[in-house]
Simulated assay, not measured.
Amino acid sequence: MVQIPERRIPEQSARRDAERVRPVPTSADVARLAGVSRATVSYVLNNTTAVRISAPTRRRVQEAADALGYVPHAAARSLRAGHSRMVLMPAPSVPVGALYSHFFNELQWALRRLDYTVVQFGSLGMSGDDAARAWAELRPVAVLAPGDGTLTPRGVDVLKRSGARAVLTIGPERVDGAHALLMDQRAVGHCAGVHLLDRGRTGIGVVVPGEPGFETFSAPRLAGIRAAAEGTAARVVPLELRYEERSADRLAARWPELGLDAVFAYNDEYAMLLLRALQDAGVDVPGAVAVMGAGDLLLGRLLRPRLSSVRLDLPSGQVLAELVDRAVRDPAGTPEVHPLLGAEAVPRDST
Score class of each variant (00 low, 15 high):
R59I: 11
G122D: 03
G147D: 08
A131T: 10
V143W: 06
N105D: 07
V143G: 01
L114V: 09
R77D: 00
G69V: 08
R59K: 14
E63F: 02
R58L: 07
A142F: 02
G125Y: 01
L144N: 07
V118P: 02
P140W: 04
D115E: 14
M126W: 12
P72I: 03
L144Y: 09
L124F: 11
D66I: 14
S84C: 02
L107I: 03
Y100L: 09
D129C: 08
V87C: 13
G97W: 06
E63A: 15
V141E: 03
S127A: 10
F103W: 13
L107Q: 00
V94F: 02
T48D: 05
A145V: 14
D130I: 06
R59Q: 13
D130V: 11
M86Q: 13
Y100V: 14
P95S: 01
A91R: 11
R133S: 10
G82K: 00
T117K: 03
A131K: 00
A142N: 03
T57D: 07
A55R: 10
A74V: 12
T48Y: 05
P95H: 10
D130K: 11
G69E: 02
R113D: 14
R85N: 11
A67H: 05
V87H: 03
E137H: 14
Y70R: 05
A74P: 08
R139T: 08
S78T: 07
V51R: 06
D66M: 11
R139Y: 05
Y70K: 00
P92H: 04
H102S: 15
G149N: 03
T49S: 07
S127C: 10
S54H: 07
Y100M: 15
Q120G: 13
D129H: 06
S54V: 08
V143Q: 00
R113I: 09
E106C: 14
S54C: 06
S101C: 04
L111I: 02
F103E: 06
L88M: 15
R60C: 06
A91C: 06
S127M: 00
A136Q: 09
R52Q: 13
A91P: 09
R58G: 11
P56F: 11
A132K: 07
R77V: 10
R80S: 14
F104T: 06
P90G: 07
V61G: 03
Y116W: 12
E63H: 02
L144F: 07
R80G: 12
G128F: 09
L144G: 04
M89C: 06
P90T: 08
V141W: 08
N105Y: 14
Q120E: 04
H73M: 12
R85T: 05
A81D: 12
H102L: 15
L124G: 12
A110P: 07
H73G: 04
F103L: 15
Y100S: 09
M89D: 00
P140M: 11
V119R: 05
V94T: 10
V94I: 14
Y100K: 13
R133P: 00
V141R: 03
Q62L: 13
A81E: 08
A136I: 00
D148Y: 01
M126C: 12
A76R: 01
G82L: 00
H83I: 08
V143L: 01
V94Y: 11
A65G: 01
A132Y: 03
G125Q: 07
L107C: 12
D148M: 05
H83E: 13
H102P: 10
T48S: 01
L114Y: 13
V71D: 02
A132G: 06
W135E: 02
F104L: 07
